[in-house]
Design a protein around this nucleic acid. Structure first.
Length: 430
RNA sequence: GGAGAAGUGGCUGAGUGGCCGAAAGCGCUUCUUUGCUAAAGAAGUGAACCUCAAAAGGGUUCCGCGGGUUCGAAUCCCGCCUUCUCCGCCA
């Protein structure tokens, strides 16, 4: 009847409303649990009424089929049936409306945070789970990347404004090749970790955006083509996760690992500020995304493996980073648990988020209708996970800042040299 | 973009107003027979939702999607989507 199912389990909400209420209270999203429960009750009563009416109608129709067409008994029955049909139709329309109202409200309930997620109201309450590398190390020549003398000649924001708008730079020459080198490196790392590469559409329809939770929560963050009803993807997570929408996977095929490189588009409405300069925040950027479909029982350990996979890439790049265990108040609408990975940009002396690794448990899978056949043969929702592996611009920013040398050039990390074919970029200034 | 054709269960494919959740075949599962395999035979084999404490059972819906006609629609009408063929265009 509806292509997208509920986000959390409605049975859980019915049976343990207080648990759901308190779990959601830990998140920053407000939602009307009682309204949803009330609408659920109305919906179910309405459906029962409609189905009973329909059953009466069907039974009567069976009798009619046995009567001779045009006979007096038949004509009498037809007259009688009209009233029943009218009633059934009205009840069905009411049931449909009640169902739609319920679903609309239900869609507004966020995923519940996992018990292991720390309490907290926002950014300041996230816990540092671990750090790698030495962010305090001397980076004697570090500069904010946007202050490097040759920066604008290789990442041209001014001409980007002319061609498209703020936040859409041109990468020129060796910097364009740097982007390509990073993307290639990221994809090969993903492949080595068992993720099968995909090349997905970079626009999606509203159903897909709803399934992964971008809609209705983050409507304003996506670029949209009103004519076609298509959204430019904010992340490859959206098309890739929807690959299996409305499908039932064989239990043995889990877990499935996939990765995809795509440009990502974000309007970032209202989030522009003075601290956002250079590559720190863009409307379009390149990213390799890792996606997993797993058994419910293993999703939390798969999240740890996912995070470890991403950490391995940062280690090869030799970028100091820290892992944040995101608090309940700062994790996203569809998230059950989330780690953010931040690299240290020595020039700005700031931590830049380059990856977010998340377990959505069955939230997306329910909305997307992605199920697997368990041991009992019954379909059940899979768990979906994803993480950036990695986003290009901020990694590039940190590389430019941390690897800046006395002569004004930037040393290319060893792991990228095979892809770049050169050991330094930029021009010597001294 | 223009002109035609088609969309039925995991697959192939019947079905032009009621007896159709839907023939038949294939596939799949279990069982039987059989030195093994193969073959043969028997039974079973979709999903969602409502009801039920749960299971069992019962009910409703689903033949691309959405409307409509009718007492009754897989079947008739309208709109849309998708696929295929031909033409045009194009990387």
């Amino acid at each position: 009847m509806l292509s997208t199912g509920p986000m959390i389990d409605i049975k859980l909400l019915r049976e343990q409303p207080d648990y759901v209420r308190s779990a959601i209270a830990r998140k920053k999203f407000a939602c009307e649990i009682d309204t949803v429960l009330d609408l659920d009750g109305r919906r179910r009563a309405s459906i029962t009424d409609a189905e009973n009416a329909r059953a009466r109608q069907k039974a009567a129709n069976q009798e009619m089929a046995a009567l001779a067409k045009g006979s007096p008994e038949f004509l009498e029955k037809v007259a009688e049936m009209k009233a029943i049909a009218t009633e059934a139709k009205a009840l069905e329309a009411a049931a449909k409306e009640a169902d739609e109202r319920f679903h609309e409200a239900f869609l507004g309930i966020p995923n519940l945070p996992d018990p292991s997620v720390p309490d907290g109201k926002g950014e300041a309450d996230n816990e540092v789970a671990s750090t790698w590398g030495d962010a305090e190390a001397a980076y004697p020549h570090a500069l904010p990347h946007f202050e490097i003398s040759w920066f604008e000649s290789r990442i041209d924001f001014g001409r980007g404004v002319k061609a498209a708008g703020a936040g859409f730079p041109f990468y020129v020459g060796e910097m364009a090749r740097m982007v390509r080198a990073l993307v290639n490196f990221f994809l090969e790392e993903a492949r080595a970790n068992g993720y099968e590469e995909m090349c997905p559409p970079i626009v999606v329809n509203a159903e897909s955006a709803t399934a992964t939770g971008q809609l209705p929560d983050k409507e304003g963050q996506m670029y949209v083509d009103e004519n076609e009803g298509l959204y430019l993807i904010p992340t490859a997570e959206v098309p890739v996760t929807n690959f299996y929408r409305d499908e039932i996977l064989e239990g043995e095929s889990l877990p499935v690992y996939r990765c995809a490189y795509t440009p990502c588009f974000r309007r970032e409405a209202g989030s522009w500020g003075a601290h956002v300069r250079g590559l720190n925040r863009l409307h379009q950027f390149d990213k390799v995304e890792l996606v997993k479909w797993t058994h419910p029982e293993t999703s939390m350990e798969e999240l740890e493996k996912l995070r470890t996979d991403v950490e391995g890439i940062l280690q090869k790049l030799d970028l100091p980073y820290r892992v944040l265990r995101m608090c309940a108040g700062d994790i996203g609408f569809p998230h059950a648990k989330q780690y953010d990975l931040e690299v240290f940009a020595a020039g700005q002396k700031r931590w830049l988020e380059v990856s977010s690794c998340s377990n959505f448990t069955d939230f997306q899978a329910r909305r997307a209708g992605i199920r697997f056949r368990g041991a009992d043969g019954k379909p059940a929702a899979v768990h979906t996970l994803n993480g950036s592996g990695l986003a290009v611009p901020r990694v590039l920013a940190a590389l430019l800042e941390n690897n800046l040398q006395a002569d004004g050039r930037v040393k290319v990390p060893d792991c990228l040299i095979p892809w770049m074919g050169q050991s330094h970029i930029g021009e010597a200034t001294s």
